[in-house]
């Protein structure tokens, strides 16, 4: 057997097999969306609590709602517009309408070779404005908006 396959050839061929195996392409499995994560708190108790219904859509985007009378939403995921420095959301908490405006800066972030780039954002703390029909107050927990599962704002209603 040793004479049939010389040692030199074995060494070279084994490398070739390894080389072919190493060329396997990979896929994108990482999270690529960076959402502003807004948790909903009941003002009376101060506890995390989902409203009976939640509707959320962007200004002038009523036909394309993120949440439409959705129940059991404790954490609302709000994507920001990387093309602009601010974006406005309309919320209806238990049917009562409010408007939220976020101001932020955006910067590119590499997710991975397979997934490509996304945008991260930095919320400008003092510039958060909102109406107070259903909403009582909003508290910024973390300014940096990334793909990680981290709470950014707390909405007390």
């Amino acid at each position: 057997m040793r004479k049939l396959i010389p040692r030199n050839l074995t060494i070279i061929l084994s490398g070739l097999i390894l080389f072919l195996l190493s060329c396997t392409p990979e896929s994108c499995f990482e999270e690529t969306e960076s959402f502003l994560k807004a948790t909903l708190y009941l003002n009376e108790t101060g506890n995390l609590r989902a409203p009976d219904s939640l509707t959320v859509y962007g200004l002038n985007m009523e036909t394309n709602k993120l949440y439409d009378k959705t129940k059991n939403v404790q954490i609302a995921l709000l994507p920001l517009n990387a093309s602009t420095a601010n974006c406005v959301y309309i919320t209806k908490i238990n049917g009562i309408t409010d408007t939220l405006e976020f101001r932020y800066s955006s910067y590119p972030h590499l997710v991975s070779k397979e997934c490509g780039y996304t945008f991260y954002h930095n919320l400008i703390s003092d510039s958060l404005t909102y109406t107070t029909n259903a909403i009582d107050s909003i508290y910024i927990k973390k300014n940096t908006i990334t793909t990680f599962n981290e709470e950014n704002i707390r909405i007390f209603y």
Binding site: M61, N64, L66, N81, A82, S83, Y117, F119
Partner: peptide
């Protein structure tokens, strides 16, 4: 260099470069 990249989300597609 990243001559071009696109990111699509709820607000539409954002094109940029590095």
């Amino acid at each position: 260099e990243v001559p071009s990249f696109q990111k699509e989300n709820y607000w539409g597609t954002t094109s940029s470069s590095i």
